[in-house]
Design a protein around this nucleic acid. Structure first.
Lengths: 147, 147
DNA sequence: CATAGAATTTAAAATGGTTTTAAATTTGCA
DNA sequence: TGCAAATTTAAAACCATTTTAAATTCTATG
């Protein structure tokens, strides 16, 4: 299930408040960006995207806010690549593919049995599930062949 | 399928050579450690475990060697936790659970459908598959309840 | 409405795991 | 044995992220 294309400030504010987070302008903008953009941005990318909108925004705030949103389950953190940490505003369970060449991250539905595997775990209380597949995307494969 | 408990130097040497890696004493020791110990050590841990055996061993060599072994598929890298990078000497496909409290990483068989999911991917050539489940282990759950 | 206290944001500095550099050492091969 | 290439090492550099401390903003209360 994907997110909506557009969220109102009131919706974002309500989401933050429901999580017990004080809805500041920075937090609303960051959560809004994560909800509306079906990408997997790093903190740097979020900062670059929003620093026009909020002139005073600092990279520190973006880092701290994303961490806060992750801790409250409003955003999830992806560690698919060891060289950068990125975030996903779609917290519905799904798998991720990453092209090792162009670093693009693609969403995929989570295979059926993963949910039942996780539910069936004994002696372990699951909180977060990530399925990561790294490989080469079609575009990069073609590029390689023609060179 | 787990690894053996004990590997001979000749076996390790042969594995390195088959991968086109020159079998130095450091590389043999590091690969041996990874093969024989069913844990998920960081570079620091590998270094600490082997620096007695090889007095001159440097942490740099451990980092570089683990990277080399991963590049050649002899060892796999886990990015289950965003605060550390660790390694697995068992390259057979399996899932990982990590306790968010004590940070212990447990091996689990990979659920059936994941392999077929990966094989069924179109327009994407898979190279590495990781299923990570983060949560709370039994021991830590009990500890929390009694406090 | 004024104001104080608390929370948040910010810039700057610090942190720490990892990589790079360059020199020293070791290895394989003639 | 000796040389060229590869590897290892210690030290320095790197850089994404966190911490610090001061400035700002928000909220509650009189």
């Amino acid at each position: 299930m994907a997110n909506k294309e557009k969220y109102t400030v009131a919706e974002l504010r309500a989401e933050l408040e429901a999580a017990g987070i004080r809805p500041t302008a920075q937090r609303i903008a960051i959560l809004g960006f994560m909800r509306e953009n079906p990408v997997h941005p790093t903190a740097e990318v979020v900062f670059a995207a929003l620093s026009g909108e909020i002139g005073s925004l600092s990279l520190t705030t973006v880092y701290n806010t994303l961490k806060l949103l992750v801790e409250h389950g409003l955003v999830s953190m992806l560690t698919i690549d060891d060289t950068f940490k990125c975030f996903d505003g779609n917290v519905n369970m799904h798998a991720h593919l990453m092209c090792m060449e162009c670093k693009t991250i693609f969403d995929m539905p989570m295979p059926e049995s993963v949910a039942s595997f996780v539910e069936g775990l004994e002696d372990f209380e699951p909180k977060d599930v990530q399925l990561y597949v790294k490989g080469i995307c079609k575009k990069c494969k073609l590029n390689k062949e023609n060179s």
